[in-house]
Design a protein around this nucleic acid. Structure first.
Lengths: 196, 196
DNA sequence: CGTCTCGTTGAGAGTTTTCAATGTAAGTGG
DNA sequence: CCACTTACATTGAAAACTCTCAACGAGACG
């Protein structure tokens, strides 16, 4: 159950056997099925979720009822509303499963305790957050700098797995464009490069 | 010179006198003047910069020569290209001063050493990065969810100091719209609410 | 006083959205 | 397993939004 988890953690920091054992105690496994909510708007995000298997999405819903995809997480990625989790305020996001998923959950108190008892995990999360900042910054730059078509090309280049794995209308939302526009863009690009 | 710095750090973590003294040794003060570069595209970002006084901006320049504002930092904020700083790769950003500024710089090796020798600073930076993630996420959501007008209204509400302090054409770039569009939006909003 | 930068305004062009219709694939219940 | 329903992708046409290009005015600075 912790295979993906420790392989991810060990990518960033060194963990002794004892530390691994201790870290495990803070997490609880959870399975959720496709379409099932992990978090609903208005509730407090009580856990960080690590995806061992499957696919989650986080999104918010605006006044007009339109969903805006914030983040996708599949094997090896984390999912949460960090703001709600850290500030213990009601979330403005929804989190649910796009595919049946197996998760590892850690609560806020356990998270704090783990960071204090296993300082290398403090380090792991600092590194994780650093990387998250960098990737968010890239997405942001693409969002403010590029046209819809350029944004899609950029995403295809930087995150092809996302394009492959995520339903098209959710990709459109993730890019901040309408499904119709994305459909037209793909159509246009396919015409230009039919040999793929 | 460290007044703003320690008041910021102490907002997030507790620091003993001894730790403060030690932390100080890792930083070097630097003054830069309006329009002066702190970092140019193609160079490696060798320092994190803390702004004691003044105002910096980071931005990239696209193929068409258009600048895209990534971040502004005034008193109490950090500035760097995190990707370049952490990966020690050439930066794709420029950083320069919008106002004459006084900075505290820390190099990558000193940064790493400080985090190991003063664990509470590891904690400080994790918290800092957490907050950064949250604010970047908000900006991103606004960027993908809203029209130009909504984005400006949102920014005015969440970060009025930015609107006041940053030249208008840079605010437009920050929002991912043209200066002309921003000018028209402001004009329109002033007509609707002339009594302010 | 002249120059330069920045903000404003106008008009037309280009992009993206909206609304609607159609086709297609997937999921569900009989 | 098939028929039916539902959700999703595609396409078209018009509307809305934003950009581009250009001109003008105001203020900063030497």
């Amino acid at each position: 159950m912790f295979e993906v988890f420790f392989s991810q953690v060990k990518d960033k920091v060194l963990l002794s056997e004892a530390e691994q054992k201790l870290v495990k105690t803070f997490f609880s496994p959870k399975k959720i099925r496709k379409r099932q909510y992990l978090l609903q708007e208005g509730n407090i995000c009580r856990h960080l979720a690590f995806v061992e298997k499957g696919l989650l999405r986080s999104y918010n819903v605006d006044d007009k009822g339109i969903e805006h995809m914030i983040h996708f997480a599949w094997e090896g990625w984390w999912m949460a509303d960090m703001l709600s989790f850290l500030s213990i305020e009601p979330s403005t996001y929804h989190i649910d499963a796009i595919e049946d998923s197996e998760l590892l959950l850690i609560s806020r108190p356990d998270f704090e305790e783990m960071l204090l008892k296993v300082p290398v995990m403090e380090r792991y999360f600092r590194i994780l957050f650093q990387n998250n900042i960098i990737s968010k910054e890239r997405r942001l730059i693409s969002s403010i700098s590029n046209s819809a078509e350029e944004k899609f090309i950029h995403l295809s280049a930087t995150n092809p797995e996302l394009i492959k794995r995520i339903p098209q209308q959710l990709v459109a939302s993730y890019l901040g464009i309408t499904p119709e526009t994305l459909s037209r863009i793909k159509n246009k690009l396919n015409k230009n490069v039919p040999n793929t």
